[in-house]
């Protein structure tokens, strides 16, 4: 199924949790934050929230800035 990840379409397996996606992206240990359909998903819920086709995700991190 397809989701929109950071503005780009991404094909993932059905029955994927947010954690599955994070691990697929090799971001398992990274300091990131996840937003699903404009709602923050707390880290504690990454493994329990399942993705649906058409979901929009943002995965962000901290970078240099003033």
């Amino acid at each position: 199924m397809d989701v929109i990840l950071n503005g780009e379409p991404k094909t993932i397996k059905s029955d994927s949790s947010i954690l599955d996606l994070i691990q697929l992206l090799d971001l398992g240990d990274a300091r990131i934050a996840v937003e699903l359909n404009l709602e923050i998903v707390p880290r504690s819920e990454h493994s329990t929230i399942m993705l649906k086709a058409g979901d929009t995700l943002e995965i962000v991190h901290a970078i240099g800035g003033g």
């Binding site: 992206l25 300091r31 943002e58 991190h61 901290a62 800035g65």
Partner: peptide, 21 residues
């Protein structure tokens, strides 16, 4: 110390050091 919040690079340089490290 200030930082900005931006999209994570997907699929590019997965081992890249993170600012917060």
């Amino acid at each position: 110390v200030t930082v900005a919040v931006r999209r994570t690079n997907i699929g590019q340089n997965p081992g890249e050091p993170n600012l917060l490290d």
